[in-house]
């Protein structure tokens, strides 16, 4: 079970969190023409990297904040976590 540092609450066990996927995905702006490819990339296509991955976590059983984490998908090492408005 991972041990994750919520930027708001501190170190907590993984069972308090929900995983939210790749944090680098940006939603296309509203009311903008979006090609099929761009839209599919946003909705479906993910890289499934091995190694360092910046991803979203949601502290669902805690402060309910979404935040970013940099994690190694192969070793599970978490290098850093940050609030959504911070650089990681």
């Amino acid at each position: 079970m991972l041990y994750i540092k919520c930027p708001f609450c501190g170190m907590r066990s993984q069972n308090e969190f929900a995983y939210g996927g790749d944090a680098s995905v940006k939603r296309p702006e509203l009311n903008k023409d979006v090609s099929d490819k761009e839209w599919d990339d946003f909705v479906y296509n993910r890289k499934s990297l091995r190694g360092k991955h910046i991803e979203l976590w949601h502290h669902v059983s805690g402060c309910r904040q979404w935040f970013k984490a940099q994690r190694d998908t192969a070793t599970h090492e978490i290098f850093k976590t940050a609030m959504m408005n911070e650089e990681i």
Partner: peptide
């Protein structure tokens, strides 16, 4: 609720 929080905190802060 998680869905709304996602959009408020991440997409349209």
């Amino acid at each position: 609720l998680s869905h709304l929080e996602y959009y408020l905190q991440i997409v349209w802060p």
